[in-house]
Computed example of a mutant assay.
Amino acid sequence: MTGKDDTAAEERTARGRIAVAAGEHGWNEMFGDVAENVRIYTRGAATVLVGYRPNGGVTGASRGRVDASGRLEKGGWLDQLTHLDASKAEQVLVWLAERD
């Protein structure tokens, strides 16, 4: 594949669609790829953590809010998706589109 083909293929994966949506909705990617298949997105006090399969499918996701010190607010994550949840990528896209 050429570089152009690689980019187009990435944009068709859940990882690619989520990265595009995060950028469109003002989210910042913390630390780039923290691990090979994990990305963390932040916007204001909101945080979304997304785990991926090597092929770009979502394995799980969590969202929460951080306090002024940058730590997760008391009570932990607001929402968590696991391997048992269906439509994880679509739910992450909904989270990214929501306004604070």
Score class of each variant (00 low, 15 high):
residue 43 R to Y: 08
residue 18 I to Q: 02
residue 86 A to H: 11
residue 65 R to N: 11
residue 84 L to I: 05
residue 60 G to M: 03
residue 97 A to K: 15
residue 18 I to W: 08
residue 41 Y to I: 00
residue 39 R to G: 00
residue 53 R to Q: 10
residue 24 E to A: 15
residue 70 G to L: 07
residue 93 L to G: 09
residue 3 G to F: 07
residue 54 P to C: 00
residue 78 L to Y: 09
residue 98 E to N: 12
residue 6 D to E: 13
residue 92 V to G: 06
residue 52 Y to D: 06
residue 25 H to T: 11
residue 7 T to K: 14
residue 68 A to D: 15
residue 11 E to R: 13
residue 6 D to G: 01
residue 40 I to G: 01
residue 66 V to S: 04
residue 31 F to I: 07
residue 5 D to R: 07
residue 25 H to K: 10
residue 15 R to W: 05
residue 63 R to Y: 03
residue 22 A to Q: 03
residue 65 R to M: 10
residue 13 T to L: 02
residue 86 A to G: 11
residue 15 R to F: 09
residue 88 K to P: 02
residue 37 N to F: 14
residue 35 A to V: 09
residue 42 T to G: 06
residue 84 L to R: 11
residue 92 V to A: 08
residue 15 R to D: 00
residue 60 G to K: 09
residue 93 L to P: 08
residue 64 G to Q: 04
residue 47 T to K: 01
residue 46 A to F: 09
residue 54 P to N: 05
residue 47 T to W: 03
residue 42 T to W: 04
residue 31 F to R: 15
residue 81 L to F: 06
residue 12 R to Q: 14
residue 48 V to E: 03
residue 96 L to S: 05
residue 64 G to R: 02
residue 70 G to P: 06
residue 6 D to V: 07
residue 18 I to E: 02
residue 81 L to I: 09
residue 28 N to I: 04
residue 54 P to Q: 12
residue 1 M to G: 15
residue 49 L to D: 00
residue 7 T to F: 13
residue 89 A to T: 00
residue 24 E to S: 03
residue 13 T to R: 12
residue 14 A to P: 03
residue 51 G to R: 00
residue 18 I to R: 11
residue 20 V to Q: 11
residue 75 G to I: 11
residue 54 P to S: 15
residue 93 L to S: 02
residue 36 E to C: 07
residue 14 A to K: 01
residue 96 L to K: 01
residue 84 L to Q: 13
residue 94 V to E: 08
residue 32 G to P: 08
residue 66 V to A: 03
residue 3 G to I: 12
residue 79 D to R: 09
residue 86 A to L: 12
residue 36 E to G: 09
residue 85 D to A: 03
residue 87 S to E: 14
residue 23 G to C: 05
residue 16 G to F: 05
residue 79 D to P: 02
residue 17 R to P: 13
residue 3 G to P: 06
residue 9 A to G: 05
residue 49 L to T: 06
residue 96 L to M: 01
residue 80 Q to G: 11
residue 17 R to Q: 14
residue 8 A to N: 09
residue 57 G to N: 14
residue 24 E to G: 04
residue 9 A to F: 12
residue 41 Y to C: 09
residue 87 S to F: 12
residue 46 A to I: 02
residue 48 V to W: 04
residue 94 V to S: 06
residue 67 D to H: 04
residue 42 T to E: 10
residue 38 V to E: 10
residue 27 W to I: 13
residue 12 R to F: 03
